[in-house]
């Protein structure tokens, strides 16, 4: 009873948000509705007892793929006026593609035949005695290991392809060499000097600071050169 109510609730939200993905004006809202749709699909998986699939759906699609979608869509500078003009111009082409797709889908659906054992399978999605994850693992890594690994390989080729296409080593870009930075030691960068007070200040006339205008010239020699600001003398090296 509760399960049925939850199913219809989630299914209704799923369909509604899927419609809003296409229907909403703002692309960011579309992506957010897409995320809602993913969520409800995960909830439906949970109701069907496929807890592992539900979690993976949330982790992969909501946690990673949709984040990147949102990332890109937010960066787009979309002019809604232009978008509406485009709809008026291209609606014939769009409608034709849509109609063909719909016809194909209808044809597929018309020729759909359920395997005789499918009805029983539906009632027990999980083999008894083992958890969902174990059951999936046993099938994936035994009977279908070849297909599974092939799918992984194809994904990796796609990933490497994307990297190769976008990675350009620009000669102008500067790189930070972390290793040389961390291997720098104090001894090779810092030199400690011990200087007598006032040493090397002859260029500025024996003074550590520019000579201030004094009212009494007789007092000038003794005071300034030997005060405790002697440390400034290092600057002259």
């Amino acid at each position: 009873m509760i399960t049925a109510i939850l199913f219809y609730l989630f299914a209704a939200i799923l369909l509604g948000s899927a419609a809003m993905v296409v229907g909403s004006r703002n692309p960011v809202h579309s992506v957010l509705f897409l995320i809602l749709a993913f969520f409800n699909a995960a909830a439906l998986f949970l109701i069907a007892g496929a807890e592992f699939l539900a979690m993976i759906l949330v982790i992969v699609y909501v946690g990673a793929v949709a984040v990147l979608f949102l990332f890109v869509v937010m960066m787009l500078d979309v002019d809604f006026e232009d978008l509406r003009k485009g709809v008026q111009r291209y609606w014939i082409a769009g409608a034709t593609v849509g109609a063909v797709l719909f016809a194909e889908l209808a044809a597929v659906l018309g020729g759909w035949k359920l395997a005789p054992s499918a009805g029983q399978l539906r009632m027990s999605p999980v083999p008894s005695g083992v958890s969902n994850t174990v059951a999936l693992g046993r099938i994936l890594y035994t009977d279908y290991v070849f297909l599974f690994q092939t799918a992984g390989l194809i994904l990796m080729v796609a990933m490497i392809g994307a990297i190769v296409l976008t990675l350009r080593d620009r000669k102008t870009s500067r790189h930070q060499n972390i290793r040389t930075q961390t291997e720098r030691s104090v001894s090779e960068t810092l030199q400690m000097m011990s200087l007598s007070i006032g040493a090397g200040t002859t260029a500025s006339g024996g003074y550590l600071r520019p000579k201030e205008p004094e009212p009494e010239p007789a007092d000038a020699h003794g005071g300034h050169g030997h005060d405790d600001h002697g440390g400034h003398g290092h600057g002259h090296h």
Binding site: F52, M55, I56, V62, G63, F71, S131
Partner: peptide, 24 residues
């Protein structure tokens, strides 16, 4: 639940949405 760790991972990966939505 059986997939507790996956649930935690899923929820923590959703945390980014609050921030993205707020920022946008």
């Amino acid at each position: 639940i059986n997939v507790g760790i996956l649930y935690l991972f899923a929820i923590s990966s959703l945390g980014v949405y609050g921030i993205i939505i707020a920022g946008w």
